Simulated assay, not measured.
Amino acid sequence: MTRTAFALRGVGYRIGDAVILEDVTLEIGYGRLLALVGPNGAGKSSLLGVLTGDLRPTAGRVSLDDRALAEWNPRRLSRSRAVLTQSNHVAFAFTALQVVEMGRAPWSGTERQGDDAAIIARSLAQADVAHLAPRSYPSLSGGEKARVSLARVLAQDTGIVLLDEPTAALDLRHQEDVLRIARALARAGRAVVVVLHDLSLAGAYADDVAVIDRGRIVAHGSPDAVLTEARITDVYDTPVRVLRDPDTGRPIVLPRR
């Protein structure tokens, strides 16, 4: 049986009179890759913010490992979950290596500090940024910054990994690489949540897909069950065709043009 990482019960989030999330009930398990998909403004990043603890729900309850998320102190939380946000800004002229090294900060002064060098080297290689290590981070392209930031998340070496649109600035090869890494993390027993706009990527790599529309989860299940022509056409208000990958049988979503 899959062990639960996050459990959300009736979660809501409002800003003034604006309803951002409403009545979200969801379980996220270790050893699973969950893709959060939905139109712009649907609430995907806000839901991820609730999971990270950066946003406090205005209704409902969020628990992590059977303990209320609000009860976790920041240091312990940083040893349990790593977060890649959409913004990859760094205020100072750190090198790419120094940015990745920041991922090890939660383990400073612990017995795991001795693993820093090996984990950093592995993370640089996984994200294909070892050759960028001496470069000034601000001098990197958007895609290079995104991959260095992913390496920082990998270096944090946590049981939960939360990624907000990690493929947005990447070329085709590196989009696939990121999702392969995410799937490998899940296969190694970690809970992985990825916010995606590319429905075909979600269909190809996710174990579970949750569709968010106007702050509510309107579908949650396997890619085959969730990514149907009727549902996607309704949620995105645009006609699509869902095909099957001839090699994997996984769903491929194409707009009808």
Rank of each mutant, 00 (worst) to 15 (best):
R183D: 04
R32F: 00
K145A: 03
G203Y: 05
G10D: 15
F94W: 08
L33G: 10
S87F: 06
R81Q: 14
N73R: 15
G142M: 11
L172Y: 13
V50K: 07
E144R: 06
A206S: 08
R187Q: 15
S45E: 12
M1T: 15
V226I: 08
G103M: 04
A146L: 03
R231N: 08
V148E: 03
I232L: 15
G16P: 12
A93I: 01
K44P: 06
L55Q: 06
T85Q: 13
T58A: 11
E176Y: 14
V178M: 06
T2E: 15
A96F: 01
W107Y: 10
T52L: 02
G215R: 01
S149T: 06
V37C: 12
V226G: 07
A219L: 08
D115I: 00
A70D: 14
V153Q: 04
A188W: 00
V148G: 02
L36R: 13
L185H: 11
L64C: 07
L8M: 12
V195D: 04
R75H: 14
I252C: 02
A230P: 02
G49H: 08
G53N: 11
R256F: 12
V226E: 09
L47G: 10
L33S: 10
S63Y: 06
Y137V: 05
V235M: 08
D157G: 06
R135E: 11
A146P: 02
G203W: 04
D171F: 03
R257F: 14
R76C: 00
V192A: 06
Y236M: 05
R112Q: 07
A59I: 05
A202R: 07
G215P: 03
G43S: 09
L185K: 11
G143E: 08
R81Y: 10
I212N: 05
R81I: 06
G53K: 10
A225R: 11
L55I: 09
G41K: 08
N40P: 10
I28V: 14
L170E: 04
F92G: 12
A219F: 07
D247N: 10
D66A: 14
L185N: 12
D213H: 13
Q126E: 15
V100F: 00
P138S: 10
A35N: 05
A184N: 13
R56L: 11
L33K: 10
P255T: 15
A219N: 10
V100E: 00
P251K: 02
R3M: 09
L64V: 05
S45M: 07
D177E: 12
R183L: 03
R147V: 01
R56W: 02
Q98K: 05
V153A: 14
V90S: 09
T158H: 01
R214W: 01
P246V: 10
G49N: 14
T95V: 11
V192W: 00
A230E: 15
K44N: 09
L196V: 01
Y13R: 15
Q156M: 02
S80C: 09
D128E: 14
L199R: 00
D116N: 11
Q126G: 01
T110M: 05
I15P: 05
Q98W: 00
L170H: 08
A204C: 02
T158R: 02
L163N: 03
Q113T: 06
R3I: 10
V153P: 00
V100G: 00
R76N: 06
E27K: 12
H174G: 09
T233A: 15
A5V: 13
A35C: 13
R75N: 11
V24M: 13
A91E: 15
V178N: 02
